Amino acid sequence: MFAIAITLLVIEIEVPEGGTNLLGQLLDLWPNYVGYVLSFALIGQVWLNHHAMFQRLKSLDHWTMICNLALLLNVAFLPFPTAVLAQALRTGEGTTVAAVFYGLVMVIGGIFFNAVWWSARRGGHLKEDTTPVEIGAITRRFALGPLLYGVATALGLINAWLSIATYIILIGFFMMENRPHRTRERPRSRQSRGKIS
């Protein structure tokens, strides 16, 4: 599904008519390139975190699959707000609405992503070796998504480019792996091992 959504992003880029001004026509498509890179990175970030999450699951139930289906619905919809944003940037009209609309899609996607995690967690589908420290760190990290994307969306009301720049920063942040280190028990000293409590 992620690969299909990325492919649809490319389809949204119009092929120039050609002629003597082909270079100019290609340069005029810069809003489409911006939208493509932005959404490609977003889908890639969702895929990376989705993969990391499912590596920690030992099983799935019906409700978790429904939440996952809702997430895929959001990802598959992404080419549309991408095209809307690119069109607004090209014409210079409706950029605020387009940036906020794009951000709202990201916020909803973040909510669906959290729903998958919470469903799997509450249903007892995590692998036994997933520690409470890991669960807490992952839960907090995922919960930040909708909140931070909500802030970036609100910035779109001030300036569309400010919002887009914040989207890029947040995508980069959530792309980075943030797996908490598992604490290892320190080996007891020879003296302590010889004592009988």
Rank of each mutant, 00 (worst) to 15 (best):
residue 157 L to I: 14
residue 127 K to F: 09
residue 134 E to S: 10
residue 163 S to N: 08
residue 141 R to Y: 11
residue 156 G to Q: 07
residue 159 N to H: 15
residue 135 I to V: 15
residue 126 L to T: 05
residue 145 G to L: 10
residue 158 I to H: 05
residue 145 G to F: 12
residue 147 L to P: 00
residue 129 D to K: 11
residue 124 G to N: 06
residue 117 W to Q: 04
residue 139 T to M: 03
residue 121 R to K: 13
residue 144 L to P: 00
residue 125 H to E: 06
residue 140 R to F: 07
residue 131 T to E: 08
residue 128 E to L: 12
residue 146 P to R: 04
residue 141 R to Q: 09
residue 159 N to Q: 12
residue 136 G to W: 02
residue 147 L to D: 01
residue 123 G to D: 13
residue 142 F to T: 01
residue 128 E to H: 14
residue 122 R to T: 11
residue 159 N to C: 07
residue 135 I to Q: 10
residue 134 E to K: 07
residue 163 S to T: 10
residue 136 G to L: 06
residue 156 G to K: 04
residue 120 A to H: 02
residue 152 A to S: 13
residue 144 L to F: 09
residue 117 W to E: 03
residue 146 P to C: 10
residue 152 A to I: 14
residue 120 A to Q: 02
residue 137 A to L: 06
residue 144 L to V: 04
residue 118 W to Y: 07
residue 134 E to V: 13
residue 156 G to C: 08
residue 134 E to W: 15
residue 131 T to D: 09
residue 158 I to P: 02
residue 128 E to A: 15
residue 163 S to P: 05
residue 151 V to A: 11
residue 157 L to P: 03
residue 116 V to R: 02
residue 135 I to S: 03
residue 130 T to N: 09
residue 120 A to L: 03
residue 150 G to Q: 06
residue 161 W to H: 13
residue 117 W to S: 01
residue 121 R to C: 04
residue 153 T to R: 01
residue 146 P to E: 06
residue 125 H to W: 05
residue 161 W to D: 04
residue 150 G to I: 12
residue 141 R to N: 09
residue 145 G to Y: 05
residue 164 I to R: 00
residue 130 T to D: 04
residue 123 G to I: 06
residue 160 A to D: 05
residue 120 A to I: 04
residue 126 L to I: 09
residue 138 I to K: 00
residue 134 E to T: 14
residue 122 R to P: 00
residue 154 A to S: 12
residue 133 V to I: 14
residue 161 W to Y: 15
residue 139 T to N: 06
residue 120 A to V: 03
residue 139 T to F: 05
residue 161 W to N: 11
residue 139 T to K: 04
residue 125 H to R: 10
residue 156 G to I: 11
residue 143 A to F: 08
residue 142 F to I: 15
residue 142 F to S: 01
residue 121 R to P: 00
residue 130 T to C: 15
residue 162 L to E: 02
residue 130 T to K: 10
residue 158 I to G: 03
residue 160 A to G: 03
residue 134 E to R: 12
residue 145 G to V: 15
residue 125 H to K: 09
residue 136 G to D: 11
residue 146 P to Q: 07
residue 153 T to E: 03
residue 131 T to F: 13
residue 154 A to F: 15
residue 147 L to V: 15
residue 125 H to S: 08
residue 156 G to N: 07
residue 158 I to V: 15
residue 136 G to P: 01
residue 155 L to G: 02
residue 137 A to D: 07
residue 163 S to A: 15
residue 123 G to E: 09
residue 159 N to W: 14
residue 118 W to Q: 06
residue 159 N to Y: 09
residue 142 F to E: 00
residue 116 V to C: 13
residue 123 G to K: 05
residue 153 T to Q: 04
residue 145 G to K: 04
residue 138 I to A: 02
residue 140 R to E: 12
residue 117 W to T: 00
residue 128 E to K: 13
residue 152 A to Q: 05
residue 141 R to H: 13
residue 134 E to F: 10
residue 155 L to R: 03
residue 146 P to D: 08
residue 160 A to M: 07
residue 121 R to T: 10
residue 154 A to N: 06
residue 138 I to Q: 00
residue 122 R to F: 11
residue 132 P to N: 11
residue 121 R to M: 12
residue 119 S to V: 05
residue 129 D to V: 11
residue 116 V to T: 10
residue 150 G to L: 09
residue 129 D to H: 15
residue 124 G to W: 08
residue 140 R to V: 14
residue 120 A to R: 00
residue 135 I to C: 04
residue 136 G to V: 07
